[in-house]
């Protein structure tokens, strides 16, 4: 095998390391991958182009999972262990708004009390979109109400044709609300999926 073959081995290793570090903040992750990459380069200076030697070098550097386990314990004694209630947070934020909003409020409280999510994710979970899919019901209700209350009313004038007046907005709302509806459906689902992904990573990282 050639030098490019060895480069591929090393790049594969660094990619696996980067993936194993997914739960770390991005800057920290980049720094650690750079440190290990430099370590590998330093180790390579004493080696030839023998792929077996490069494999042995990567073995000595260690399994990406071991490096990730060491990194996830940084700064605190152990990574946060997700509790059972944390599993309820994404579904509550998504669907809790449908239960008079109470479920959603409970979801937000649990979200902020949990050690699993960092503050950007907590903000995201709270602000996009308050009420989860419950927001959809509110907007739909607001859109339907004027249509139901309004509609056409016609006045029959003597002799002439009936003059009809249409109340309630019928032209702007459908175009606007189509986009609003898409956002109202997609955004809460995307946020719930993101929170669930972070929770599962934390579960794997903590070994629970």
């Amino acid at each position: 095998m050639s030098t490019t073959g060895n480069e591929t081995l090393i790049q594969d290793y660094l990619r696996r390391l980067d993936a194993a570090l997914a739960a770390l903040p991005r800057a920290r992750r980049r720094e650690l991958v750079a440190e290990v990459a430099e370590h590998i380069q330093a180790g390579r200076r004493d080696l030839g182009d023998d792929p077996a030697a490069v494999r042995q070098l990567l073995d000595r550097v260690g399994a990406p999972e071991d490096i990730a386990a060491a990194a996830l314990g940084e700064g605190r004694d152990r990574p946060p262990v997700p509790r059972l209630v944390d599993a309820m947070v994404p579904p509550l934020l998504l669907l809790g708004g449908l239960l008079l909003g109470i479920g959603w409020v409970l979801g937000v409280v649990l979200l902020w009390a949990s050690p699993v999510w960092r503050w950007p994710d907590k903000l995201l979970g709270t602000l996009v979109i308050p009420g989860g899919l419950g927001g959809l019901v509110v907007v739909l209700g607001a859109a339907v109400a004027p249509a139901a209350g309004g509609g056409s009313s016609c006045i029959q004038t003597s002799g002439g044709p009936p003059q009809c007046v249409t109340t309630g907005s019928t032209t702007v709302l459908p175009v606007l609300s189509l986009w609003v509806l898409v956002i109202l459906v997609v955004a809460p689902i995307a946020v719930a999926v993101r929170l669930e992904t972070v929770r599962r990573r934390a579960r794997v990282a903590s070994g629970a």
Binding site: L32, V36, R60, V61, A70, G75
Partner: peptide, 22 residues
Amino acid sequence: AESDGLLAGEGTIYPLLTRLRR
């Protein structure tokens, strides 16, 4: 790494050095 068993892999020293620095 010369002392067998002290490190899970040479790369694990970097998170450890970060912890000591912090």
